[in-house]
Amino acid sequence: MLEQFGEEIWTVDGPTVSVAGFAYPTRMIVMRLSNGALFVWSPTALSSELRAAIDSLGPVQHIVAPNTLHHMFVGEWQAAYPAAQSHAVPALRAKRPDLKWDRDLEDAPAPEWSNDIEQVVVGGNGITTEVVFFHRASRTAIFTDLIQHFEPGWFKGWRAIVAKLDFLTAIRPTVPRKFQMTLRDREGARRAVQRIMARPTAAVLTAHGAPIRIDGQAAIAHAFNWLLGEKASR
């Protein structure tokens, strides 16, 4: 259910969902802003028990879809919290016109959360544009799909082979091969990751992988070494 991860930040591990025939766990992150409002990142399925736990923390004012792939349960939250604003990357408006989108996520935080959360847009690949967030109070960097890590036994049969080839079951969390291979604007992505690396990150949370509680900057550097180290190797 709702588990406190650090100062003013909680995680919720939701149900497993099927995407293109692969089973993926789901994770939601809730951050309480300085004004007491809640920022709900990548919402999971909403049960009555979860709603009661969320409501005990404060009012939900921001529902956030951090890339074009994480939107499955947004409609449930919009129905439950009609006064909340919904934020998404621009491409999601076209993909999910059935949902209510109030504001686009940009390469700078909205005024409502700028005192508590920073953000960087990482684009340039052919699959999705993702907004990476940094929660100041807990010094936590939050990735959606750009960094993933599954235990070797999570996938079975041919899916395990595909997952291995995609780096999903690498020894350490890393960027899946498909995102690396479809990256078009490498210099733009490199600049974005360098901005992320400039934050004093202690911990890292991802949608698909165990929480990283220490040495967060080192974990990000390892995941993006293939991109950050390109110039040095030329």
Rank of each mutant, 00 (worst) to 15 (best):
L99V: 06
K100F: 07
W101F: 09
W101V: 03
D102C: 10
D102A: 07
D102F: 00
R103T: 11
R103L: 13
D104S: 13
E106L: 14
E106G: 07
A108Y: 02
A108P: 00
P109W: 00
A110V: 06
E112F: 01
W113R: 02
W113M: 07
W113C: 08
S114F: 00
S114E: 12
N115S: 15
D116Q: 08
D116L: 02
I117D: 05
I117R: 02
E118T: 12
Q119M: 10
Q119V: 01
V120Y: 00
V120S: 06
V120R: 12
G123P: 07
G124N: 08
N125A: 09
G126V: 03
T128A: 13
T128H: 04
T129R: 07
E130V: 05
V131F: 07
V131M: 05
V132G: 02
F133E: 00
F134K: 06
R136S: 08
R136T: 03
R136Q: 09
R136D: 01
S138N: 06
R139C: 00
R139V: 00
T140V: 04
A141H: 05
A141Y: 04
I142Y: 11
I142K: 00
F143L: 02
T144Y: 03
T144P: 02
D145W: 10
L146M: 14
F150E: 10
P152N: 13
G153S: 13
G153L: 13
K156D: 15
K156M: 12
G157W: 09
G157N: 14
W158T: 03
W158A: 09
R159Q: 14
R159S: 05
R159E: 12
A160V: 05
I161C: 02
A163E: 05
K164C: 03
K164H: 14
L165C: 05
D166M: 15
D166I: 00
F167R: 10
L168W: 14
L168Y: 11
A170R: 08
I171S: 13
R172I: 02
R172C: 04
P173S: 06
P173V: 08
P173N: 06
P176S: 05
P176I: 06
R177N: 08
F179G: 04
Q180A: 15
M181Q: 10
M181I: 09
T182A: 10
T182M: 06
T182N: 07
L183G: 02
L183R: 06
L183T: 13
L183H: 06
L183W: 11
R184A: 11
D185A: 05
R186E: 15
G188H: 14
G188D: 01
A189G: 10
A189L: 07
R191A: 11
A192I: 02
A192M: 04
A192S: 14
